[in-house]
Computed example of a mutant assay.
Amino acid sequence: MPSLSGATRILNRKNTYEESAKATLVYFWSMSCSECAQSIKNLKELERIFGDRLTVHAIHMPREKEDYSETLVKEKIKQLDIIYPVYLDNELKISDRFGNKFVPAFYIFDQQQQLRFFKAGYFALKLLQQKIERII
Rank of each mutant, 00 (worst) to 15 (best):
V26W: 05
L11S: 03
Y87N: 03
L127W: 10
E45R: 13
K119M: 00
R63E: 02
E35T: 13
S3N: 12
I136G: 04
Q111E: 14
L43H: 01
P62R: 06
E70H: 02
L25Y: 02
M31Y: 00
E19Y: 03
M31D: 02
S39W: 07
Q113I: 06
V103F: 00
D89P: 09
F28W: 06
E18F: 06
T71D: 03
D110P: 08
D52N: 09
K74D: 01
V73T: 02
K44H: 14
F102G: 05
I82F: 02
A124S: 15
L72T: 04
A7H: 02
E75W: 00
D81Y: 13
I40R: 08
N15C: 05
I94S: 07
A37D: 14
G99N: 05
A37T: 15
K131D: 08
Y87C: 00
Y84R: 07
L25C: 03
F106P: 11
R9V: 03
S30W: 03
L4I: 04
K126A: 15
H57M: 07
M61W: 06
V86F: 04
L80Y: 05
R53N: 15
R97S: 14
S20N: 13
E91T: 11
S39I: 02
C33D: 13
N12S: 10
I10E: 12
Q114M: 07
E66W: 05
N90Q: 07
Q79K: 14
A105H: 03
I94Y: 08
A124C: 07
L25G: 00
E133N: 12
K76E: 12
R53F: 15
L92S: 11
V26M: 01
D96C: 00
R116L: 13
I135F: 08
K101G: 00
L92Q: 10
I135Q: 09
K131G: 09
I49A: 09
M61D: 03
P104F: 14
S20Y: 10
Q129T: 10
I136Y: 05
K78D: 07
I132V: 10
Q130M: 11
Y84H: 12
K131M: 12
I94P: 07
S20A: 10
G51I: 06
C33A: 04
E64M: 07
F98Q: 07
K74S: 06
D52C: 07
N100P: 03
S30M: 05
K126F: 15
D81W: 13
H57G: 04
S39K: 03
V56N: 12
F50W: 02
C36T: 08
F117H: 09
